[in-house]
Each structure stands twice: as structure tokens, then as C-alpha cells.
Write a protein that binds this DNA or RNA. Structure first.
Lengths: 194, 194
DNA sequence: TAGATTGTCTAGCGGTGCTAGAATCCGGAG
DNA sequence: CTCCGGATTCTAGCACCGCTAGACAATCTA
């Protein structure tokens, strides 16, 4: 049993090595630079080793996405309780969310733009994803009017943040006015609450 | 002069042929299917011909994007005047925008997610892009509170629509609830106006 | 120590965007 | 009508991609 467990441990360690290397490479040079050859060289193994751990490049990105999502959830969680009223809570998570996207663009892309083979919006979705969503939901819930589905409202607020982030990061919205756009968004979502 | 003009005309025709073929191929099978080889075969010329017209694949996508943007602008323009009040106008352009994205996903991606080498949010941006933006702006302007920059508010509404569309199309938001999310968004943007 | 099993690597497939240089076509001069 | 020069188009190839079959090496079992 000892040998088997040692092998499994070594395998798990190497798997983490792969995910970490992919993440660092992506954060340093973008996902375009993360090729299977480059990644293999980085971990000092040959290409096929990657495929003995993951089904393909997409699966590696998905693993990075889950890891990154935990980080996002943690940052949202840290930001929310500091707010005193509901508007401040909306602002806090909004700022934390967009700040994460700007500070860790590769991570954000892995979670929310690239890797499609992650289950979303179902119970099978990764726990980290639900954690992040629930942080948003906790901030959004107080502004839900009677008859509004809080979950749907959270999705809507999330989508708005996502739109701001992606359009800005792709150069379609000027970065300079980001704070003001975010404030406008919050203003329209927080109306009726105080 | 006659020969020269004929050649220029033929060149222009072929350029349109390229853009049209790229667009049709993308709409039929997605942008992944639009390779330079495939596109060359489609127009019955060799690959290098593409590069005598466009700097690269990105430039071809940009040309398709501009063309598609004119279509989007036309659909937004057609939708707006039918609305009687400001909330209905917001709803009309919102529905038209998201309907376009769902009906012509390849076109939408060319305009708003892929091709980055198009100038946005500057006077140099393609006229069709400004047309589309101005249609949105016309619907948004009436809901701008005193002190709100109508342009920024339009950008924010646009970003929200974009977020809804992209998250839905990538499978991160369930499609079924789209209409309700859109209604929630409109409700929060149209508040105070009627 | 011999054999079986597990793991890893080398080499290669079919594909991508893009380009240098050869081949071809065509209008205009003699 | 012929032949030349320049513009145009094609063939062939580069370096890279994700991915994999099959040869090889290392390790454990008996």
C-alpha cells in the first residue's frame, strides 16, 4: 500500500505542478503563450505527460479556472462585510470583482471567457464558483424588489460587471472612466435601497 | 485609364467576395472553421491572394465586423421608434440587441469579442459602430439623471447587455431565463422615468 | 535475477497563419 | 504578329499548434 500511495502522492504533486505552471505562464505572458510544448518544458517533462493527467489543454485551463475562482471568491468575501449599507455592499463586491479581473486577467479569462467545459449554473458547478456567486448574491439580495427572483437579479448584476470588464479589457471601453461606469451601474441597481 | 479602372473594380469585387465568403462560412460553421486555406478554396483562389487584400485573418474578421455592425445598427434603428415611452424604448433596443447576438453569433463575436484591431470609442471608429452606439444612446438618454453623463450611461447599459449575451452564449447563464434577466435589467435602468 | 508492468519519451500526424520565390498571364512596343 | 516587362497568382514551404502511436526505460514482483 505504501508504494501505491507514494505514487499517487507524486502524481498529485505533479498535477499541481502542471496547474501552477500553466497559471503562472498565463498570468505572465497570456494564454496564447501557454502551449503544450512550452508547458511541458516548464515542468521539465515531455508533452504526453500532460495528457496522462488531463484530457487536453482545455482541461488544464479548467483546472486553473477553478483555482482562480477560489481566489475570486475569497476576495469578494473579504470585501463585502466591510460595507455598512446595501449600496456600499454592492459597490464593494463590484469593485472587488472588477479589480480581480484587471489584476488577474488570465485567471479571469480562464474562468469567464475561455474554458467552456466547466459546468455553470448547475449543482455540479465547482464549489468555488458557487462561493463566488453566493458572495455576489448576498450583496444583491437586499435590493431585490418584491417578486424579483434574487438569483436572477444576481445573475443580471454579475453579467453587467462581466460586460464592463470584458469590453474594457478588449479595448472597446476606455479604461479611464471605469469607476464612473461602475458607479452608474451601482446607482441603478441600488435604487430603492439604502 | 479604362484598364486601370477595370482592374480596380475587379479587385474591389474580389475583396467583397472574400468578406462575404468569410462571413457566410463563419455564420454557417463558426469562426474556427474560417481558416485561410478554407477561405481561399471557397473563393477559388490561392491563400496568398487573401494577403494581397488584407493584412491577415484579423483584418478579414474586422471587415466582416464592420459589415455586421451596419446590420446591427439597422435593426436597432428599426426597433426603437416603435416604442411609445422610455421604458419601452430601452426594452426595444435591449431585445433587438440580444436577439441580434443570438441570431448572428458569429457576426456578434467578430464585432464584440474577437477582432481587437478595430478602433472603439474614438472618432476613428467605423461609422457603423457609432450608428449602433447612437441608437442605444437615444434610448438611454431619457433615463439619465441630472449629472449623469449620457454617454457613460449608454456604455454601461451596453456593457450589461453584452455581459448577458456573452455569459449566456458561453453556457454560463441558462438561456431560458434570458427574457426575465433582461426585464430585470431594464427595470433597474428605467427607474424614475416613464 | 528474470519477467511483467508501469511509466516516459521520441517522433510524427494533420492542422494553423503566413510568406518567399517561381511561374504565369497580359497589355503595350516594335 | 511577336516578344518583352511588369503585374499578378501560384506552388511550396516555414515555424508553430494540439495531440498520439509506438519504442524505450525504469520499476516492482516473484
Amino acid at each position: 500500500m505504501s508504494i501505491q500511495t507514494r505514487r499517487e502522492r507524486e502524481r498529485a504533486e505533479r498535477e499541481r505542478l502542471i496547474v501552477t505552471a500553466a497559471r503562472e505562464l498565463a498570468e505572465a505572458e497570456g494564454w496564447d503563450a501557454v502551449t503544450t510544448r512550452r508547458l511541458a518544458a516548464e515542468i521539465e517533462y515531455s508533452q504526453p505527460v500532460l495528457y496522462s493527467h488531463f484530457k487536453g489543454k482545455g482541461a488544464i485551463m479548467a483546472a486553473v479556472a477553478v483555482e482562480g475562482c477560489a481566489e475570486l471568491a475569497a476576495e469578494l468575501r473579504a470585501a463585502r462585510p466591510a460595507a455598512r449599507d446595501t449600496r456600499a455592499a454592492l459597490r464593494a463586491v463590484g469593485k472587488a470583482y472588477t479589480a480581480f479581473a484587471r489584476r488577474r486577467p488570465a485567471l479571469y479569462d480562464a474562468i469567464f471567457t475561455h474554458a467552456v467545459d466547466l459546468p455553470f449554473a448547475t449543482p455540479e458547478a465547482p464549489a468555488a464558483l458557487w462561493d463566488a456567486f453566493n458572495e455576489l448574491a448576498a450583496a444583491v439580495k437586499p435590493v431585490a424588489a418584491e417578486g424579483d427572483d434574487p438569483g436572477l437579479l444576481t445573475e443580471t448584476y454579475w453579467a453587467s460587471l462581466h460586460g464592463l470588464v470584458t469590453l474594457m479589457r478588449s479595448g472597446r471601453l476606455p479604461e479611464g472612466a471605469h469607476e464612473r461606469r461602475l458607479e452608474l451601474l451601482i446607482g441603478h441597481f441600488a435604487v430603492g435601497a439604502d
